[in-house]
């Protein structure tokens, strides 16, 4: 028997597979399809203090080997997440939650972190400083190392739970932001969020998305994500949750060889609602195929 378990900031996960924020809602749709407790952990939809509708539609576009979304952080707001969504989720899911939070000010991030950090279900606070969809919001924190550090400190100050900063790939040098977050006290890093992208409809000659720009995800971004995880792994010594286009057990192994301690799966769940279950089932077989006994042993194994 191979060992698929991994550890994130002292948190033991049975396997490194975590559905990514925004592609799994609050789990309800998937709980009807399979037992969610096979997952390593679960990252729920990005939560803000106030309820948000998000951007106008259309907010989804096809892309070669991927998709572009401009959902714009639609969520029911902190109070409804705590009082309605998470109690429902706790009935079907008993593993750690990754609480993905967003905000338009450092105070808003802190308010979300404080409230969600108190919940015993929450294992990790994941701070989305990178969502490229919201004007004047996430983007500015994610592309500026000083702002990223400020948010990290504010969130660290209000919770005892491990704080992972989720980085934007839409920057000149991702290691600069990563280092700033580590210095500001981040317990770990999640990367990458979606890449800023667009499509144009040839018939109307106008952008497909009502918001013009959205975020690219899916297999198209896997090699980019892999490169960034590899680079950040060399720059920091805190654990990394790798994501971006992961769609198979082989991708999980590749991402971990680049330096990820765990892996998140986003867009793949939308195309194949059983993606996480399939990957978890295939993982031991893929490990055997590549001669891996303990998955944890391969983290960063690709570095020279």
């Amino acid at each position: 028997m191979v060992d698929t378990s991994v550890t994130l900031s002292g948190l033991r996960l049975d396997n490194p597979v975590i559905p990514a924020s925004g592609a799994f809602g609050f789990g309800a749709e998937f709980a009807k399809l399979y037992d969610l407790n096979i997952l390593g952990a679960l990252a729920f939809k990005g939560t803000t203090v106030e309820p948000r509708f998000g951007n106008p539609t259309p907010r989804i576009a096809e892309a070669p080997m991927g998709m572009i979304n401009s959902v714009g952080l639609q969520n029911p707001g902190l109070e409804a997440v705590i009082n309605e969504e998470l109690p429902k989720l706790s009935e079907v899911f008993h593993k750690p939650l990754v609480a993905n939070i967003s905000g338009f000010s450092a105070e808003e991030y802190a308010a979300c972190a404080k409230a969600l950090g108190k919940l015993p279900q929450v294992g990790i606070i994941e701070v989305n400083i990178s969502c490229p969809n919201v004007h004047g919001g996430g983007m500015s924190f994610g592309v500026d190392s000083k702002l990223a550090a400020t948010v990290t400190r504010e969130v660290k100050a209000v919770t005892t739970k491990p704080v992972y900063i989720k980085l934007s790939p839409n920057v000149t040098d991702i290691t600069e932001i990563a280092t700033a977050c580590e210095e500001a006290g981040a317990d770990g890093l999640s990367l990458i969020n979606t890449l800023s992208a667009m499509r144009i409809d040839l018939k109307t000659r106008k952008p497909v998305l009502a918001n013009t720009f959205g975020g690219l995800s899916g297999p198209a971004i896997f090699p980019v994500a892999l490169r960034m995880v590899y680079q950040v792994y060399e720059a920091v010594s805190i654990p990394i949750i790798g994501m971006g286009g992961v769609s198979s057990a082989e991708d999980v192994i590749e991402m971990m060889l680049a330096g990820a301690s765990a892996v998140q799966i986003g867009a793949a769940n939308l195309r194949n609602p059983f993606a996480c279950a399939d990957i978890i089932r295939e993982l031991p077989r893929a490990m055997e195929k590549y001669g891996i006994n303990r998955l944890e042993d391969i983290i960063g194994g690709a570095h020279r």
């Binding site: 925004g22 592609a23 799994f24 809602g25 309800a28 749709e29 998937f30 939809k45 509708f53 998000g54 539609t57 259309p58 907010r59 989804i60 576009a61 998709m67 979304n69 959902v71 639609q74 769940n269 939308l270 195309r271 609602p273």
Partner: peptide, 27 residues
């Protein structure tokens, strides 16, 4: 109709505003 990311309620790609709150066209 709306452009859909998943078609089963997971992505919030297809939301619309109704008199009774936000609804997903797919769900």
């Amino acid at each position: 109709e709306e452009r859909m990311g998943c078609g089963f309620g997971a992505c919030m790609g297809c939301s619309c505003k109704t008199r009774y709150g936000y609804k997903r066209i797919c769900t």
